[in-house]
Amino acid sequence: MGSVTRIVLQRLALGLLTLFVVSIVIFTAVNLLPGDFAQAILGQGATEEAVNAIRRDLGLDQPPVQRYLEWLGDALQGDLGTSFAQANFANFVGSGTVSELASVTSQIAPRFANTMFLAGVTAAIAVPLSLTLGILAALYRNSVFDKLANITTLTSISSPEFFLAYILILFLAVLNPWLPSLSNIYAGMGFGERLEKTLLPALTLTLVVTAHMMRMTRAAIINLLASPYIEMARLKGLSPMRVIVRHALPNALAPIINVIALNLAYLITGVVVVEVVFVYPGIGQLFVDSVKIRDIPMVQACCLIFAAAYILLNLLADILSIVSNPRLRHPK
């Protein structure tokens, strides 16, 4: 087990390092803004005095390295700063206190939960569906089913998320009023109702993710079925079922886990557009709104959360595929 543990620890360390560097990149990018936050908040017409007051209160007169370390330290403790949009800066100047509502964390937390719910529903539909379809396409490769699946998934991958979203709205909400086209979710909603409102955005995401996942599964399985040891298993007179279950699946685990993790990472980007289309109160929509009104701390925080989720999922894929590799699990 020694070498596996070492490799996994190495990857973990590398992942954390990447996350750290990414946080620097995000912080630096924001600091490329012309002028500074204070100027951005108050606009061009602000008096020098007011700008300076905010600068002091936000600690903008400190050197960038110190500000970065403070920001990072706060972020690690769950404090992601103060949202410009919510804080009433007229009162804020000089008073030195920030109301609870204005903190970025309190804004993000419920929306983060909503987004996780959406991603969870999507994954619950997409993962079993795409694995089944992908394995079937690999087993019956070059059949009519496989060719049809190829064209359909290619089309689905090529379409922008909003195209798929509007088509689903057209058929499932407008022409046949089965599902709501707007996902107005609020706290304290029952699970059933919540699920119903989430279904349409989840289906849209499923369409995109399933296409990706299915193609990758198909490629991984075909690759696997071409291995000489599969041919050997067939030549031993084993039944097709046994060849698949005993010889293909144990080796397919690593690539399939990889495919799932990579696509969940892909979901993160897809969620932004879909949330906007369905006005789903998740972190993606919050991010886009903050971008439009240039709410810098909010943008920074959302960006960090998206990047962290993305890095962690990729890391997870990496580690799981190492752990499930028999060559590494049973070293010489």
Partner: peptide, 15 residues
């Protein structure tokens, strides 16, 4: 590449 591209693009577009 560790930052999802659409997210990174949105961040930079803000700036």
């Amino acid at each position: 590449m560790a930052i999802p591209s659409l997210i990174f693009a949105l961040l930079l577009m803000t700036i």
